Simulated assay, not measured.
Amino acid sequence: MNAWQLPEGIDELTHDQALTFEMLRRSLIDLYTSKGFGLVIPPMVEYVDSLLLTSDSVNEKTFKFLDPVSGKMLGVHADITPQIARIDARRANNTIEKYCYINAILQTSADDFYDSRSPIQAGAELYGADDISADVEIIELMLESLKLLSIDPIVISLGNVAIFDALINQASLTNLQAAELRQIFTRRSSPDLAVFIANNSVANASAFSALMKLEGNSPILEQALDLFSEYPQALSAIKDLQAIDEKLQAKGIQATYDLAELKTYEYHTGVVFSAYNQNYSKALAKGGRYNGIGESFGRSRAATGFSFDLKFLSQSK
């Protein structure tokens, strides 16, 4: 192997690429701080327990090694959000807190969101506000970020993982069955869902079949209210989406809705959203709500935020 060859999925920026990235990084930080989001620079390495937050997805993507100093297991951050939860938990007040960051992360494998194993994650997170105005603020900031990167037009897709969770709560499934069903929805596979329902006793099978197909513009939300009228948790989640849709439309922002969207980390608890552009084959930015994320640090807080790979987007035009 050549000594100058980089590992698979690991890349670098040089010369004009690096200059373009740095100019955009500075512009984004100026944007975020002008909106009241404080810049944080979390460490590259932490104790593994602080990085995972009981998330299997983050666990699978985290490089781990034994610390020769402490004798404890360390991890290289694969996602910044758990670190923001730790930082927020250290604050002594219950006020609304806003954070932003642009940090290199490292993942054991690339996925359908990050193009490489060494993306540079940029994002903003808002803690301490449980109302939908916080989600709208974060969505607007995500849109401003992409426009600053000269990506336009942008299509926003929203969902709410609480709808799926509401159906799971009444499905009478084992933990293993529930995990398998979640993976089927993550893959968005109707044939696999049909096989699962045929091979398992699912108390509300028709509801899952209906959910798999619920995708479209805002009128789909009224249809969902009728379909899931027997699920109070689902109704509340759908009404949250309607309220967000009303606020976005008032600002001239049109959104589509995918109520079966589950391509999220396990710590997401409610509204989730993604941004798309016709020139790209995948989501450019993603985010959502993750209430209670600081619980493992002794301080459960409402939270919402978004992130994207600045290294990829800065070089893709």
Rank of each mutant, 00 (worst) to 15 (best):
D165H: 07
F113G: 08
Q121E: 15
P153R: 15
G128H: 10
D131Y: 07
K147T: 07
A205C: 01
I168T: 10
L193K: 00
V195S: 13
L149R: 11
T174G: 14
T186Y: 13
E125R: 00
S189A: 11
S150D: 14
S150G: 07
S190P: 04
A166M: 04
N175R: 11
F185T: 04
A179I: 06
A205N: 05
P119A: 07
I156M: 14
L158K: 08
I138G: 09
A122S: 13
R188M: 01
E144N: 12
L126W: 14
L193F: 04
L149D: 07
L149C: 12
N200D: 03
S201I: 03
A166C: 07
N200G: 05
D131N: 14
A124S: 14
L176P: 02
L143T: 04
D152C: 14
S190F: 09
A166P: 00
S172C: 10
A129H: 11
I163N: 00
L176M: 11
E180H: 10
S172I: 00
D131E: 04
R182K: 13
S157K: 15
S109W: 01
S118P: 04
I156G: 10
L148D: 12
A166N: 01
E137H: 05
N200I: 06
Y114F: 12
P119E: 13
P153F: 12
T186I: 15
A110H: 02
P153K: 03
R188Q: 13
A166R: 02
T174Y: 09
A178W: 02
A205P: 01
A179D: 10
E180W: 04
I151C: 10
L181G: 04
E137Q: 11
V155N: 13
R117S: 09
D130F: 12
S189D: 12
I132L: 13
P153C: 08
D111I: 03
V202D: 00
S157I: 00
E144F: 00
A166Y: 00
A178R: 07
F164S: 05
R117L: 09
D115K: 02
R188H: 15
E180M: 10
D165M: 06
V202T: 00
A198S: 09
Q170E: 14
I138W: 01
L173A: 04
S109K: 13
A124T: 11
I197V: 12
V195R: 15
I120C: 08
F185D: 00
L158D: 06
L181T: 03
I163Q: 04
I197D: 09
L193H: 06
R187I: 02
I151T: 03
I120Q: 11
P191R: 14
A162G: 07
R188A: 07
D152R: 12
N175M: 10
D130G: 14
L181D: 01
Y114V: 01
V155M: 12
A198I: 01
I120D: 08
L173M: 02
Y127G: 08
N169H: 00
E144D: 15
V202H: 00
V155T: 15
A194R: 10
R117A: 14
L176F: 07
S145Y: 01
P191L: 12
Y127F: 15
D111K: 04
